[in-house]
Design a protein around this nucleic acid. Structure first.
Lengths: 197, 197
DNA sequence: GGTTAAGTGGACCAAACGGTCCACATTGGT
DNA sequence: ACCAATGTGGACCGTTTGGTCCACTTAACC
């Protein structure tokens, strides 16, 4: 594509979008003020409105971006995992990092958003639903692989098990945010895994 | 206690507090404005500040009130349930009402608060932790009763199972808020129950 | 009935909110 | 060199936020 006339952007939209995503992830939608966003994204208000349209439009793009990043990451992790079940275990155990304080307990943007908005806004509800579907897809692939590998009985309903995993992960993240200790989380993870076989 | 001098209150603090609790429950802390609260509680701003001190103080009292009501309700339900396992099933299945649209999907105040605040505010983090402990206590009693009644093997770690139930319930509520269909929730509930035996 | 203690309504406040607008800067095309 | 097109910084906007203050009302007590 030929270079467009006019002054070029002084920032990388991708980088800025990612920065906004991290802010929303950490603090939620309402709690991330315009000032916070500008500071995190390192752009001026005009640029934000010009490039992203506004706070809510920006947020919706962040949701998509989050899904892209996370699903890609999970897909890679699944592809390089020793086994489907190993991937699932690793996935569940990732909440322990939050509990141990290795990283901030910010949960999952999709679930956080589901909790913050319930279904007040249709556009955001749809973004949440899509995020959920994508996560479910990864879990489904993992379960099916584990069934092929003989770690999960083939007669179990893979779709339901995937639902169960998404739900369980959400519960674990919330518990972690609520300040549950590591032992409780570990015990719960063990029970979740046990339910798969 | 002798009647205090001065003008008497024109509202019932208990009723007002409960109304505030329901608002916070439905809309969260940040999303409930002072105006919303005054309207819901049917009192003037002066009265609110006089009687409850401010928004956050009011919220903390609402958290306690929520715990009192819920734990009382659950305790009664457990006492009058046919079996410990029956109570647990009934408890988990209560999310289906939200999914069916029978009532609004507002989740659980304690878990909602955990998600909204993570551990930003120490006082609120403590309120969340206490709410969690109380819920865990009820679940623990239910599990132990189910063990006595032979529905859950006596060698299972009751404390961990109670943790697992709290986590699972939280996950179900979030999924419900995210717009999951009834069949998914039912399937997940079945898997949760299966993990207990 | 006057005095005192308490409650209430509404005006008022500074700060923060998301959003708009415009003068100016910076580029490519001619 | 000039022009058209685009980006940027900052002033500015009305609204809403949680919170304070005070004049006024209402009751109990002596």
């Amino acid at each position: 594509m030929p270079a467009a006339p006019g002054r070029p952007l002084e920032f990388d939209p991708d980088t800025a979008l990612t920065a906004a995503m991290h802010l929303f992830w950490r603090k939620g939608y309402e709690n991330s003020s315009m000032l916070d966003l500008l500071e995190a994204m390192q752009i001026s208000k005009s640029s934000l409105y010009q490039a992203f349209g506004g706070k809510q439009a920006l947020f919706e793009r962040c949701m998509t971006r989050y899904g892209d990043l996370m699903i890609g990451q999970l897909h890679d992790a699944l592809a390089s995992a020793h086994s489907g079940l190993g991937f699932i275990r690793q996935f569940l155990e990732s909440v322990l990092d939050e509990a141990r304080g290795v990283c901030e307990a910010r949960g999952c943007l999709v679930m956080n958003t589901a909790n913050e908005f319930a279904r007040r806004d249709p556009a955001i509800a749809e973004a949440v639903a899509q995020g959920l579907r994508r996560f479910h897809g990864v879990m489904l692939a993992a379960v099916r692989r584990a069934q092929i590998e003989g770690d999960i009985p083939p007669d179990r309903d893979a779709v339901m098990l995937a639902n169960y995993l998404v739900s369980s992960m959400s519960g674990l993240k919330t518990l972690s945010k609520a300040g549950a200790d590591e032992a409780s989380l570990k015990g719960t993870i063990a029970l979740v895994l046990k339910a798969l076989t």
